[in-house]
Write a protein that binds this DNA or RNA. Sequence first.
DNA 1: TATGTCACTTTAAAAATGCAAGCGTCTATA
DNA 2: TATAGACGCTTGCATTTTTAAAGTGACATA
Lengths: 120, 120
Amino acid sequence: MNHTHTSDIDFERSPCAVANMLDLLGDKWSLLIVRDLILGKSRYGEFADSREGIPTNILANRLKRLEMAGVIKKSAYSAKPVRYQYELTEKGRDLQPVLEAMADWALKHVPGAEVFSRYR
Amino acid sequence: MNHTHTSDIDFERSPCAVANMLDLLGDKWSLLIVRDLILGKSRYGEFADSREGIPTNILANRLKRLEMAGVIKKSAYSAKPVRYQYELTEKGRDLQPVLEAMADWALKHVPGAEVFSRYR
DNA sequence: TATGTCACTTTAAAAATGCAAGCGTCTATA
DNA sequence: TATAGACGCTTGCATTTTTAAAGTGACATA
């Protein structure tokens, strides 16, 4: 051991709030899954069907990561073949302002970009 | 050519605003450079010195990408060895609400996370 | 001439991503 | 009863991205 006290908190890169948010969610797919959940999707197949076409291995990996991080939780919706549906936790729901800020930015600066609304 | 009309806009993945924002900025480093610029940094060495320790080839690559996308612009601050400083454009400054939303989220949900403020 | 600074670039290895196919359980159809 | 399909993944492998480390070129300073 070579630290001087035990109150150190282990950050992947730094204590910066933005950096820590990115350590968990800073990739091209995680927030799209959160978006889909906000839009009302809940099942694996629904995420896989989204227009961006997430590879299924990445989808499975991200669902695991988000669940371990407490952003989503899963529950069985079928017993005989055990199948799960996913939903946002409060931690996950609290990402909505981030998605909204990102959408606002893109609406202003990416020509042609559209906001995917809840019902479509 | 096999498209039927010329008004198609080419999106990397979909017209979704969030997806398009992520296509440009959805990685672990780009928004940290934007953060540093908001915090008042402007030079290559300053970005490289940030606590997260961005690899220099990634830094150079991201600066190019952000410049090509119009998020930052560079200008020479020295002539004899030509050296550049970087600053945010309006498009880049408009990312501040995104960073703030991300920081708010992390402050609430990542224990120990701190907001890096402008003067430190 | 020698050393150092700054802003990168290069190289090679490691890790992440993407594509396609496969798998196990079950339901529905012929 | 055999066949096919839906669903939710997992696996294998090629490609791309990221990483750490070292190197480069222009110049300032001693």
